[in-house]
Amino acid sequence: MEITVNGQTIKLDEPLTIAQLLQRFGIEPLRVAVEKNRDIVPRKTYAEAAVAPGDAIEIVTFVGGG
C-alpha cells in the first residue's frame, strides 16, 4: 500500500502502526508530533494507531527558530 509521509510517497509491504512507522524511520517518539489526515495522533496511542492506504502522515519536530 502507499501512504504519504511529510509529502513523500512511501510504499509499505504490510500494515503498520504509527509506532512501527516511526521505528522504521529511526525516529524517537518523544521528540515528534504526528498528524494523520490532519488530525493529531496522541503519543500514547502510537502503538495502536494503524496506518491505512492513502493516509497522509505528518511527522514534525522542533527546530531552531525565533
Binding site: 511529510n6 514534525v60 519536530t61 522542533f62 527546530v63 531552531g64 527558530g65 525565533g66
Partner: peptide, 15 residues
C-alpha cells in the same frame, strides 16, 4: 523559542 518543522526522514543530523 522553538519552531515546528517536518522531521527529516533520512539524514537526521546523526540523531
Amino acid at each position: 523559542t522553538v519552531a515546528v518543522r517536518r522531521e527529516r526522514l533520512v539524514d537526521k543530523n546523526s540523531g
